[in-house]
């Protein structure tokens, strides 16, 4: 019984990781690839880690706390890493693949720059 659950978790994990990699290959720009990488792959690996944890807990009666710690760590760091990479990519001027799409951030940045310039000219006077 427990073997079936572990097998299902393993298959889900492997499938999600593989689909995430296909997403990395197929998406047209960095931001889309980040979506595929940090979520499908992360969930897949977490599923595999749960399978390993259950395997050692129920079949060998060993409670491996480090595996749980790894799950927590991956969960905590995946969004932070994605945030850093996307921020760096945007700041270095990597454009989205579709030029006509919605971009609120560009508008906000332009306004911010305008305000800065105004303040500078005011202080000069």
């Amino acid at each position: 019984m427990i073997e079936i659950i572990i097998s299902i978790l393993l298959l889900i994990g492997g499938g999600l990781t593989f689909i995430g990699s296909i997403g990395i290959l197929r998406f047209p720009d960095v931001y889309g690839r980040l979506h595929a990488a940090t979520k499908s792959a992360t969930l897949g690996v977490i599923s595999i880690m749960f399978a390993t944890f259950f395997y050692f807990w129920f079949i060998h009666d060993i409670f491996v706390g480090k595996l749980l710690l790894t799950i927590l760590f991956v969960f905590l760091t995946a969004p932070v890493a994605a945030f850093m990479v996307s921020k760096a990519a945007y700041n270095t001027g990597i454009k989205m693949s579709d030029k006509n799409s919605q971009d609120d951030l560009a508008i906000a940045m332009r306004e911010h720059e305008k305000k800065n310039k105004q303040e500078k000219s005011n202080s000069d006077v």
Binding site: Y31, L34, H35, K39, P79, F83, S86, K87
Partner: peptide
């Protein structure tokens, strides 16, 4: 927001 797929907080 970052962890749910389809959305990614970036700034």
């Amino acid at each position: 927001i970052s962890l749910t797929p389809g959305t990614l907080s970036m700034y």
